[in-house]
Design a protein around this nucleic acid. Structure first.
Lengths: 206, 206
DNA sequence: CAACACATCTTGACAGTGTCAAAATACCAG
DNA sequence: CTGGTATTTTGACACTGTCAAGATGTGTTG
C-alpha cells in the first residue's frame, strides 16, 4: 500500500472495495476528459459500475464530491508551491519568478480542475466543506508568508503583506482565469504576460 | 421613446408587444434576485407570462440569451469607463485610480451579472455570440488604450501596452473574482486592496 | 375583402439532471 | 447462526434545456 493510498483512502469499504476513492478517480477523469459541466453523478456512478444513488453513501451530495476533488487539487498545488519555495538553491527573485510561472503552469495544465477549485459553486454561500477549508486556507496563508519574505528581501513593495498578497494573487488568478475561460488571453501570450507581471511587481527592475 | 429603448429594443413585435426585451428585463431581475444558477428558461418564461418555449423564437437557446444579457453589461461598463476616462477635470493619476475603483465597484454592485459577463460558459468553445464579441472586444481594446496613455504619462511601467493591460486587467479581474466568489477577500477589505493595487502599479509612488 | 405567407406562441414530448424514500443486499460482531 | 449495520439498488419526483408539430395572430398581396 503506497503512501498516496494512505492519504487519499481513509477506510477500505465493504462491497465495492473502496467506492469513495474510486469515485474521486473517475470524477477527475471525467472532468479532464470533457470539463466540469460534463460531470454528473449519474455518469460518474455508471463509470464506477454502481447505481445512481450509490455515491450518496460516501458524499452527502454533488457539492460534497466537488469539494473533495477541489481539496485534492489544493493539496497538490500546495505541495508544488512549497517545494519550489523551500528550494535552497534559488534566490528570492528566482523564487518569485518560479511562483508566478508555476501558478500559471498549474492553471494551464489543469484548467478544468482549476475552474472547480476557484469556481464560485463550491465557495459561495456555505457550500464549502470543512475539509476543503482546512486544506485551502493554509494554502492561502502560505502565499502571504511567501509575499512577506519577498518584501523583507526588498524584492517587492507594499507594507501590509496580506494586502500585497491579495493583489499579487489576484493578478495571477485573474490572468489564469482570463486565459482558461478563453477571454482575451490565449495560449501563445501566457508566457509573455507572466514575464510582464513579474517585471511589474518587482521593485527597481533596473 | 427613450434613447435606451432605441439601443436595447431592435424591433417591436407582434403578440406580446415586445417579448424579447421583456425577457431580458425579467432575466436580469431573476439573476439579481437569486443568482445566475437560479435563471432557467422556464422560470423566465413564466415570469414573462408566456409558455416555456416562447423564448426560443427570440433567442436560439439559453446560451444566446445569456450572451445578450452579458452584452448589455459590457455596454454599461464601457460607458462608465469612457465617462471617467474622458473627464477633462481628472489627472492621469486620478483616472487610473478611478478606473481601478470603478472596476471594483461595478463588480461589487453587480456580482451576478459580472459572474455571467466573465463566466466561462458564454466564452468557452464557440459559445460567444457575434453580438457579444462585437460589444466586448472594443471594451477590451479601450483598456489597452487607457493603459497606453498612462504609460505615456509616465504613470505606470512596462513597454508593451497590451501585455501591461493584460496584467492590470488580470489583477482587477482576479481581485473582483476572489471577492465575488467568496474566496479569501471579503467586502470589508475590498477598498484597501484596491488602494494597495493602485500603489503597487503606479511608478515611483514617493 | 379574401387568401396566403409568415411570425409568434402553445402543447406535448424526450432525455437528462440531483436527490429522497424504501427495499434489498452484503458484511461483521455476538 | 443471528441480528444489526453499512452499503447498494430500485422507484420516484421535480426540475432542467430543447425539439417537433400544431394553433393563433399579423401583415401583405392578389
Amino acid at each position: 500500500m503506497s503512501l498516496a493510498n494512505v492519504i487519499e483512502i481513509p477506510r477500505p469499504s465493504y462491497h465495492h472495495g473502496d467506492l469513495r476513492s474510486a469515485l474521486l478517480v473517475a470524477a477527475k477523469d471525467l472532468i479532464a476528459e470533457a470539463g466540469i459541466d460534463n460531470l454528473s453523478l449519474r455518469k460518474l456512478a455508471e463509470r464506477a459500475g454502481v447505481s445512481r444513488t450509490a455515491p450518496y453513501h460516501h458524499f452527502s451530495g454533488k457539492n460534497d464530491l466537488l469539494c473533495a476533488i477541489a481539496a485534492q487539487g489544493f493539496r497538490r498545488r500546495h505541495r508544488e508551491a512549497m517545494a519550489t519555495f523551500d528550494d535552497p538553491r534559488l534566490t528570492p527573485e528566482e523564487k518569485f519568478e518560479a511562483y508566478i510561472f508555476g501558478y500559471m503552469q498549474f492553471a494551464a495544465d489543469n484548467p478544468e480542475e482549476y475552474e472547480l477549485m476557484f469556481g464560485r459553486s463550491i465557495w459561495k454561500q456555505e457550500n464549502s466543506t470543512q475539509e476543503l477549508r482546512d486544506v485551502a486556507y493554509p494554502c492561502f496563508q502560505h502565499q502571504v508568508d511567501m509575499v512577506r519574505s519577498w518584501q523583507q528581501a526588498g524584492l517587492i513593495t507594499g507594507d501590509n503583506p496580506l494586502r500585497t498578497s491579495q493583489v499579487i494573487w489576484g493578478a495571477v488568478h485573474g490572468i489564469a482565469k482570463l486565459f482558461i475561460d478563453g477571454i482575451y488571453i490565449d495560449a501563445g501570450q501566457i508566457e509573455e504576460v507572466s514575464r510582464c507581471a513579474v517585471r511589474m511587481f518587482i521593485q527597481n527592475p533596473a
